[in-house]
Simulated scan of single mutants.
Amino acid sequence: MSLSDTLAFLRAWLRDPRSIGAVAPSGPALTRLMTAHIGQLDGPVIELGPGTGVFTRALLEGGLPIDRLALIEADPHFADALARRYPQARVLSMDAAQLGQTHPLFGEERACAIISGLPLLSMPTEKVIAILQGAFDQQLHADGVFYQFTYGPRCPLSDSTLQQLDLVAVRVGSALLNLPPASVYRFSRRPQARFVA
C-alpha cells in the first residue's frame, strides 16, 4: 500500500466517515481472505466500494482478467483514481444501492461474485436491502456469491434481512491481524431460491 493511497483513504474518511467505515485500507490478511476463492469461480466479478483498490490489485494478481472486473465506487475521487489506474476495467461512479436499476454490467453473462468493501453496519437497513437485492436480482447469476467483510462480532446482515432476501450466510473466516480485526462472510441464495432466480 503506497503512502499516497493511504493518504487518499484518510482524506475520504475525513470527508465522510460513515461512507468509508475504517480509517485505513484493508491489510494483507483481510485481502487474502476476501479474494481467496475468486480464482476458483468462473465468470466476471463486481467489486463494491473498491476505494484505493486493495482488493482490486489482489483480484488481478490472482489472475482475474481486467476486462472481467467492474468497479462500483460512490466516492468520485476514488472513482477517478481507479479509472486512471485501471483504464481497461469498468469503473462506475455510482451508489451501489442503484445496482437493481442498472442493466447487468456484463450483459447476458452475469457476474459469478461480488466483493464488497462497503460499511454495511453503518448503513440504513433499507439501503443494505437495496444493495443486496439489486446484486442478486440484477447482477449475479443463479449460483453467484457475495463476499462481505465486517468489523462487528456477528454477521453484518440480520436473520430477518437474510430471510427477507432468501439468502444464507456462511462465515468464511477471520483476519485477526487486520487493523481492526475483521471477519468475512459469503452470502448466497437459499437452494430453493436458485431455481426461481
Rank of each mutant, 00 (worst) to 15 (best):
G144E: 01
L14T: 14
L118V: 03
A79F: 13
Y151S: 02
L41R: 09
I66L: 08
L140Y: 00
L14E: 08
P153H: 15
G53L: 04
L99I: 03
L41H: 00
D159F: 12
V196M: 10
Q192E: 15
S26D: 12
R90C: 08
R154D: 10
P76C: 07
G43L: 04
G27S: 01
L177N: 01
P104W: 05
L3W: 10
S26G: 08
C155G: 10
F195T: 07
W13K: 12
L176M: 14
A130K: 10
L69A: 05
A197E: 01
G152Q: 14
I20L: 09
E109C: 08
S19P: 13
F136E: 11
E109T: 14
A70P: 04
G62N: 05
A83I: 00
T125L: 15
L33Q: 05
P181I: 07
S2G: 12
L59V: 00
A113P: 01
R190G: 03
P124M: 15
T52N: 01
L10R: 14
A142Y: 08
L64K: 01
Q98N: 09
A8M: 11
R190M: 12
S183T: 11
G62W: 06
L120K: 08
P153R: 15
G117R: 02
P50S: 10
R110I: 04
G134F: 12
D67S: 13
M1C: 06
V184F: 07
L64Q: 04
A83H: 03
L30I: 13
F9P: 06
R84D: 10
D16Q: 13
G49Y: 06
F136M: 12
G43P: 01
L140S: 02
A81T: 04
L82I: 04
G49T: 10
S160I: 05
P87A: 14
A83V: 05
R11A: 15
F195L: 07
A29W: 00
P17L: 11
V172P: 07
P124L: 13
P119K: 09
V128R: 13
A74E: 08
R11N: 15
K127S: 13
E47L: 06
P87R: 11
Q192A: 14
A97D: 12
Q101I: 11
F136Q: 10
E126A: 15
S174K: 12
Q138N: 13
K127D: 11
G152Y: 06
T31I: 11
L179N: 15
I66D: 04
